[in-house]
Amino acid sequence: MHPAKSVIFFTTASGAGYGLIVWLAMAALLNLLPLEAFFACVAFGLAFVLIIGGLLASTFHLGHPERAWRAMSQWRSSWLSREGLAAVLSFAPMGLLALYWLWPEQALLGQISGAMAWGSIIMALLTVFFTAMIYASLKTIPAWHSKMTVVGYLVLALMSGAMLMALLTMLWGYDGAGLFSIIALVFVLLGLGVKLLYWARLAGKKITSTAGSATGLADFGAVTLVESPHSTDNYLLEEMGFKIARKHAAKLRKIAVLFGFLTPILLLGLAIMLENSSLQIVLLFAGVMLGGIGLVVERWLFFAEAKHVVTLYYGEHAI
C-alpha cells in the first residue's frame, strides 16, 4: 500500500495525542499530579495540537476536504465514519477535563471531573480503536486483517503518550514523573513485543488469495500475468502496488526497532536510575524525539509492507 504522508502523520500524531490524554485523565482520576494551570496549558495544549494537527492532516489526502463533515453520517456500517464521529465527540470530555485542570476550584467542573476523566479515557481509546479497525477490517489487505493491528495501534498510542507524559511531568519536577517514566518503559517493552509479534505473524501467514483464485483459472495450472492492460501505471498500481519498501524492509525494520523501541528503553531506563533531574529531562526528550522517528518509520512500514490482493491482477502470484 502507498504510504501517504498525511495518513502516517495523522495516525502517529493523533495516536500520541490520545495516549497523552489517557495518561492525563488517569492522573486526574488518581490525584497523581497537582492541578496547575501552566502545566495544563502545555500538556493539554500539546495533546490537542497533536490530535487536531493529525485530524487536519488526514483531510489533506481527501479529494474534497470541504465535504469531510459528511464522513460522520455512516457510523452504522463504516469504521472510518465511526472514527470521525468519535474524534469529534471526544473533544467534549477532553475539553472539559482540560478546563477542570485550569480551574479546579470551579464547583461544577469539580463535580463532573471524574466523569470527564473516564469519558476522556474511553473516547480517546475508542477513537484509536476505530482508526485501527479501518485497517484491520480490510480483508483485501491480509497483512492488516488481524487483531494484531488493533493491539498495535492501541499499545503504540499509549506508549508514545506515556513518553510525552514522562517528559512533561519531569520538566515540571512532579513526584509522579518517576511513575510515568516506569509506565512509559513498560509500554515501550509492550510495544516492542507487539511489533515483533506483528512481524512474526506476517512471516508465518497463510496465503489468502492467489492469481489462480483471482482469475478463476486455478484448475488450468499456475497463473501468470503475461500482459498488463496498459503500458503505464494507473491509479491502482500507484495506490496499491507500492514496492519500494519491500526491498529495504529488513533494514527499515531494524531502524524502527532501534529508534522506536531499543533507544527509548535505554534512555528511559537510564532516566529512571539517575537522580539528576536536568539530565533526566535531556534523556527523556531524546527518547521522545528518537522514539517519534522510530514510530514514523514503523507506520511507514505498516503501509508499505502491506500487500493488496488487487496486485494479483498485476503480476503478484500469491498474497
Binding site: 500500500m1 489526502h61 481527501l62 479529494g63 474534497h64 476536504p65 465535504r67 469531510a68 459528511r70 464522513a71 472510518l80 479501518i134 480490510l138 480483508k139 483485501t140 489487505i141 488469495s209 483471482a214 494507473n234 491509479y235 491502482l236 495506490e239 496499491m240 493488496h308 490482493v309 488487487v310 491482477y313
Partner: peptide
C-alpha cells in the same frame, strides 16, 4: 463523495479508480 479512496482499498478487484481532476 469526499475522495477518501477507502472504497478502492476495500475492493479486491480494483474496480474503483480515483479521478484526480474531480477528486
Amino acid at each position: 463523495c469526499i475522495g477518501c479512496k477507502l472504497c478502492s482499498w476495500a475492493c479486491p478487484y480494483g474496480a474503483r479508480e480515483y479521478d484526480e481532476d474531480e477528486g
